[in-house]
Design a protein around this nucleic acid. Structure first.
Lengths: 148, 148
DNA sequence: GTCATTCCGTTGTCAGTAGCAACTATAAGT
DNA sequence: ACTTATAGTTGCTACTGACAACGGAATGAC
């Protein structure tokens, strides 16, 4: 019967491994398209949250606004996002996806999910469902410590 | 009853979230010490696998040898690793941890596990054990696709 | 209404991450 | 001995990420 500490240690280790393997795979999947991992993450955030200001996007991504500004710059150059000045506040900008940006994200997402599907093809559906629930609980617990 | 595709999609999403939250937390935990995330990963690999050649270290970390060489350089400058020429092969070097390197990794690891422990403090032990098993299965499945 | 303060986004700078290609030196195969 | 393969380093390029300083716009105090 492992102690709380031992459990924490093993879980940290296990998550660490999972992260490495996924990270590596994602890089491969994403970078063979036109964008980097961070750029893809920005696309994803805009898909999920809709048009955002720069600061809001930075907050969502847990990044500094300067870093975010440069990531967005790269996406602007490639015509995947649109930057429109906010009429209500001359300082602010609204960032949104172009059709090309939406299409690119769909494609990449498709690739990633296909990879994931191949990965779990040998696991029983109950196992996957169980993992899903538990991973969500872990994420919620982690976010709770991160947030306020 | 979700389809295989739907399951893959949800699982991808869930793992993605977990990765982001952990990544962010790890950066905070690690970088307040003397090393970056990649440098810490190199320390970790040397702790686990013992002394390694540069190429072997690069393989373990899924990185290019040039990238690895520079990461090791940084650790050398800070006196956390030792580089000894291999007597059996004049081209090769043996990388090992200095006592300072071992101590630093222990400290960081302690911090990370403490964080993990706090995170799971509100979850039932059975939940954590379940997550552990499932995450390991997922990692194994992912590694199987990655490897050969 | 003006002035200080705060907020939004950009830019400069610095350190780190990462891969590819070219290079040196050593080792191994023929 | 000559070719080929391997080990590690270095040059280059692009991206990541934070902090600090800045200019312009909004807001609050008075």
């Amino acid at each position: 019967m492992p102690s709380h500490q031992e459990r924490a240690d093993e879980l940290y280790e296990a998550i660490n491994q999972l992260i490495r393997v996924h990270q590596f795979r994602d890089r491969d999947c994403i970078c063979c398209h036109d964008v980097s991992v961070a750029q893809c993450y920005a696309l994803e955030t805009l898909v999920k949250r809709g048009p955002l200001r720069l600061q809001a996007l930075a907050d969502e991504m847990y990044l500094d606004k300067s870093t975010t500004s440069r990531v967005v710059d790269a996406l602007l150059r490639k015509n995947y996002v649109l930057k429109v000045p906010d009429p209500a506040d001359q300082r602010a900008v609204q960032l949104s996806l172009t059709p090309a940006g939406k299409a690119l994200y769909r494609t990449i997402r498709q690739d990633l999910v296909t990879e994931e599907a191949a990965m779990i093809s040998k696991l029983a559906p109950e196992v996957v469902d169980g993992a899903l629930t538990l991973i969500r609980q872990l994420t919620a617990a982690a976010r709770a410590r991160l947030g306020p």
